[in-house]
Amino acid sequence: MAEAGVATVVGTGGRRSKLFRVGEVKPYLFVLPFIGLEALFLLLPLGMSLYYSLFDIKYLIVGDFVGLQNYFEIFSNRRFLASVGVTMTFSLFSLFFTFIVGFALALWLVKDNGHSVFMRAIILVPYVISMLVGSLLLKWVLSQDAGLTDLLLGPLGIPSLSILGDPSTAMAAIVYNGVWRDSAFAMMLLMAGLKSIPLHIYQAAKVDGASKLYTFWRITLPLMRMPILITLVRLLLYFVNSLTFQLVLTGGGPAGATTNIVLHMYRSAFEDSLLGLGNAMSFVLFLFNLAIIAVIIILFRVSGRTPK
């Protein structure tokens, strides 16, 4: 039995070691409610999702236990596999352009003068607009029947085209939607990082005669490694798990060209009422997210910095 007031565990060598004294346990007790909430709202649904993915569930009625059949079904489904490709295409393109635009904006507006503050406010407008409203607005702007594209492109000699009716341009439209909206978010994260770089380093570089490009490559970028990685992780997870852009702007079409995993899962679970299949997809998506996090951790290690 453990001594009163001391929590003990069996060490790897088999001997009993004192790890926590009362004072050391207390902080963990404060954290415990939040771990409980996390378990309640994350681990429990995840466990339930895994459990129900093993059943045939139609219209909220739990049917037969089918084992891994739902998983076999989704991996033999051409459309699901296509949705994995769509997810990767959308996420990587959106990530690339959002990051580039966000970083450029952060560099441009990092100084706290009146112009920067005003421009930051303007740039944040797309981000504070509801994703649903923004996507719906863009849908009508891009409409061939009633939108602005023909008016804007016509004078340039570009013939009328259906942006949302063509698979390649529809993908470009949702990438644009993501970039338009979330560059501001990237800007905020990266700007916080830029502001944390001590000013005297730049002053020293200037005294040494370093050019602006040299300063950027040799000072800004190395010192921004952590904020950049955090921004990339945050944006990538966000784009991989996005639903609203696809659901509202393109409806996943045309011909499945913009149907990502989440939309495929949403349709299976809530439109087709195949909840067993939808749960299996959600669990696969969870593993997909874990894989992304694993890649990011590897990147941290490769760069020689581990997150604290």
Partner: peptide
Amino acid sequence: ISQEAVARTNDDAWDLFIGGR
């Protein structure tokens, strides 16, 4: 029928009709 139709929901078609399109 316009190719845009593949991107049109029932509500979209109806809104366009109401709008005289």
